[in-house]
Design a protein around this nucleic acid. Sequence first.
DNA 1: AAATGCGGGGCTT
DNA 2: AAGCCCCGCATTT
Length: 506
Amino acid sequence: MPAAAVQEAVGVCSYGMQLSWDINDPQMPQELALFDQFREWPDGYVRFIYSSDEKKAQRHLSGWAMRNTNNHNGLILKKSCLGVVVCAQACALPDGSRLQLRPAICDKARLKQQKKACPNCHSALELIPCRGHSGYPVTNFWRLDGNAIFFQAKGVHDHPRPESKSETEARRSAFKRQMASFYQPQKKRIREFEVEENQDNSGLDFSSIPLENPEDFDIVTETSFPIPGQPCPSFPNSDTYKATCDLATFQGDKMPPFQKYSSPRIYLPRPPCSYELANPAYTNSNAYPTLYKDSTSIPNDTDCIHLNTLQYNVNSYSSYERSFDFTNKQHVWKPSLGKPSRVEKTNHGQFRAVATHPYYNPELPCRYLTTPPPGALQTVITTTTKVSYQAYQPPGRKYSDGLGEVKSLSSCSYAPEDARMSVAVYPEAWGPPATVTRAASPSGPLPMKTAGDCRATRPTMAMPHQPVSSRTDEAETWDACLSGPGSAISHSERVGPFFSYNNEDF
DNA sequence: AAATGCGGGGCTT
DNA sequence: AAGCCCCGCATTT
């Protein structure tokens, strides 16, 4: 039984967070008993320990668009988040969702990317930078030590998810295929398809694409564009759809087949985790509108309310649900130009006022927070041992008003209806909480919450047309802390059937 | 072509 | 000095 499976079976927090260590420690934990299952979407102040055999860890992969950052430390690889590329006009895609592209990692490619027009409305694209770590981008640290790969993330992403890397690659690959095929004589096209089919291990299956009809190519091309929120069943070509889905969603070993979603185990909340669970960026969202719409209604003693939102319901909807109301979102994401204490020019020529940006204090333990008075000083843990102080600004209505935009989920055939059952579980049911101690951590005074501090409450999520995934953030944060089938139906599955764009860079 | 990793170097605290 | 970022370069995919 794989270690990850053991972890999940016994219901413990990530192995990495059960141990006390920091990426900067001179000596890393030795003689590890287990390894964590790879997490594609780490968010929050989390730590994992992967096996050095884990391919994705070896490659320092992340669903987030992370670029290398020089930390002048050969032992520790540091990466920072590039954010997400969206339509500057926040146009609604055919299904009502918003565009969320993966920023190109390469600076040059990213500049080029940003010069492109929105494939939907042809207005400009906009790079929303990540500022989830006290105004700086969220950072990920990787360190190989012995047979373990230590991973530590610092910061909470304050933006929607971009496409995952595999999604982007799959889309580009699909598009290139289509374009290459489209402009060639039909026989040659067929021959090429056969060749590519033999060579390609991407998982995409284009054998179902009717080559005789160029219009069908248009459709496929369109659907190769990532359009969040498109319900799977509406895909015009079920075979193609399935192929796209299979590739981007399950990403190799990560996600079990659909059938596995029917396993009750998946719906069970994981035991509460400790200090690194918080994802305060979404604190004020209406993600659980029917549950805790008003943060003030949260019991004071409920430091942590873990909403294990239907992990089966795939990450594809997570970025989707985070789209919500872009109008509102822009109020938050747009840099405050008023009093920038530190202004940096982005690739876009935008200015970024770091200090005036509301940041999400990792010390705030959980998501349901009362709003601190403006200007209140909060301790911020920065990348290493530094402790800084910044004025806290409440996050405002960030991902709010997104109700109903996830309307398509219920039509997703792979999500069994009964999966939306509601369960209320309390930590006691999980036995002794995992003790998480980190008092000596050089990372400073992170919230030292033990599992026992948290109340794992499973809200009712039984409304078929509710945005059941509208708080996947929590679920993901959970996921980041807990072992389990991390992900993920991808954007590719939400591909819009009638969406057209003829630029392969998208 | 783009992703990735390394390392020099400038700026700020 | 530490931490952050930008940039260029080389290698890999």
